[in-house]
Design a protein around this nucleic acid. Sequence first.
DNA 1: AGTAAATTTGTGTGCGCACACAATAAAACA
DNA 2: TGTTTTATTGTGTGCGCACACAAATTTACT
Lengths: 364, 364
Amino acid sequence: MAKKPVRIKDIAKAAGVSIGTVDRVLHNRGNVSEDALKRVNEVLDKNEYHPNLIARSLGSKRDYKIAALLPNHLNDDYWGLAYQGIELAKPEWLHYSVHIVAYEFDPDLASSFQEASSKALKSKPDGVLIAPILYNETFPFFKNLADKAIPFVLFNTNIIESNALSFIGQDLYHSGRLAGELTCLGQTGEGQFGVLHVDEDLNDSIHLVQKENGFRDFIAERYPFTHTIVSLNRTSSSDFSFKKKLANLLSQPDLKGIFVSSSRGTETAAYFLKEYGKKEIRMVGYDLLEKNIAYLKNGIIDFLIHQKPQQQAIEGINCLANHLIFKKEAKRVNLFPLEVITSQNLESYIANQAEHTVINISVK
Amino acid sequence: MAKKPVRIKDIAKAAGVSIGTVDRVLHNRGNVSEDALKRVNEVLDKNEYHPNLIARSLGSKRDYKIAALLPNHLNDDYWGLAYQGIELAKPEWLHYSVHIVAYEFDPDLASSFQEASSKALKSKPDGVLIAPILYNETFPFFKNLADKAIPFVLFNTNIIESNALSFIGQDLYHSGRLAGELTCLGQTGEGQFGVLHVDEDLNDSIHLVQKENGFRDFIAERYPFTHTIVSLNRTSSSDFSFKKKLANLLSQPDLKGIFVSSSRGTETAAYFLKEYGKKEIRMVGYDLLEKNIAYLKNGIIDFLIHQKPQQQAIEGINCLANHLIFKKEAKRVNLFPLEVITSQNLESYIANQAEHTVINISVK
DNA sequence: AGTAAATTTGTGTGCGCACACAATAAAACA
DNA sequence: TGTTTTATTGTGTGCGCACACAAATTTACT
């Protein structure tokens, strides 16, 4: 009844060798006779051994360093949340002698990224977590990491060609499709939809383009009435032509809804919607930032898609740490569900958020 | 820089006593002189010691038994998922010498519950996880557990007066409100709404009543047009009056939407909607059961609220096991977020679901 | 004081694993 | 055959904690 998990010791006894030999077989350390190897492997096949990760971690004395590269959190609540996640992971992993250091950069300055990344490299990290939002700038860095054989994990934005250990985040195309669905829902008749990008360089931001594509595709497939989709892009906060174009869009009587592609932009767009008294227009944006929450509560925003930056960062760290300490193989892609927040389930998310820190040791 | 966590050994050295004494102080085992006690406590205050839970678990040789009480999973996909969660937790916790046994009962038979619960008790469990869906029948059982000082955790349905170690699940009133919001969304004009309960004894099922109340309250507060809410209750699959009433409801031209209060009912209701060709009617139900997923995909169902029975069961087990092994104090209430599933974010949930097993050791 | 009893304190062991190192066996050489 | 080298195998130690037990100290009692 009380079936105990098999230990190295059990394997050793069954195979008629010492635990040292089993250990060598398990870790491919060589120096094992063919005969012993065969016998151990036979026992191994029959008994399906899983190492006790707990015990494994206790013994290892080695120190590990993980560098986290992400946009500066001071002026951006979204990255602030990611940063929070990293801060939460820190003390948890300290018990395992994993030291986490964040390196932040200005997302609008390629040079800033280069600086941060070279700093990170200089610290000789054993693993790197990175939010590769600057598509073009990150490639040389990946190359560098690969040369040094430093494992790295991406979060927030996926770059498939990067050959990263793992990507953690959402499927942004389907995120856009979901936004499309939420925008159309219950609506009928001819009209216009708006897609807003705020303060981002679209050439360097594939993630936002993916969202827009998803949005457009969904509406094209599923909205059965004649319609147009207007895409507006604010390049900076002093971009007055944007303001004018937006004012014009908002004044259209047949405007059905607005989709904003980023969390920061959501706040800005909501502000304008409120300003122009367009509360009734359907609006979908991103993330549980403080202001977005307020706009959701008072009905300006109808839906927020929750990207969980905090959890993404935490799981990124967990993935790396598990890989380093426990040699656990990482999932190549860890896609978060696309969570829909409305005024009525908001509280349930906020209440739940604080809690789940977590080190996640799962016994394969 | 590399700040190591303090260990018992460190405390001992700082206080000028042996680790045995520190151990006695930490566990209130007594047999410590006032003098030593004071010195150890002083050091403890200054250094904020957190036990290394990993190491703690290694040392303890004790075996623990957890009994899980839930409705039979064979004829019910919802409880099937909960059962799956328990099955997933089993091997994970085996490493810590925690043995989990499920005791199932027929949710329509009070006697069956009594039988299962007494069986569970006979096994002398160290902790019990229970889905208390039979409001009246569970009370004597709680009393029994309390007398024997066996900690227990509720999931799925909360019974506040139970004095359980923890409740894991959702706020059902707000779940109903959310359903209301999703049902109204984008709708205008006078009309009717339907609330459907299927195959449940409402007198013994406060959880469904809570949902209906939430639904009614939301619509009363937020739907600005004249409306009526019709509540239908199918007592059994051979209840023909229900079928007639439902057919009548569905034929109303001003029917705005349908809310079904349970996952099993969702499937049934969707079937009728399809049968009567009422695809366009807004419908909100519960859970990612196979058939519900199909109805969501083909547009009969518009929204599913995800109760995550699997995760609830897992977290329930985790809560108990952490409490038993690590003496971690449990959160009194662990409310899951109310997750909204649509045709467009469905896949992201399904893809994500398989993965997260988990033992969750968090270092306080 | 001398012994017994009670109180307080310190030490040793094991949990399962990784890894260093010692011990043994086998092969190579003189 | 003896000695060295090399291949193989076994043993010991520590990780941090809990807990059992032994040792040291204090207190009670004759």
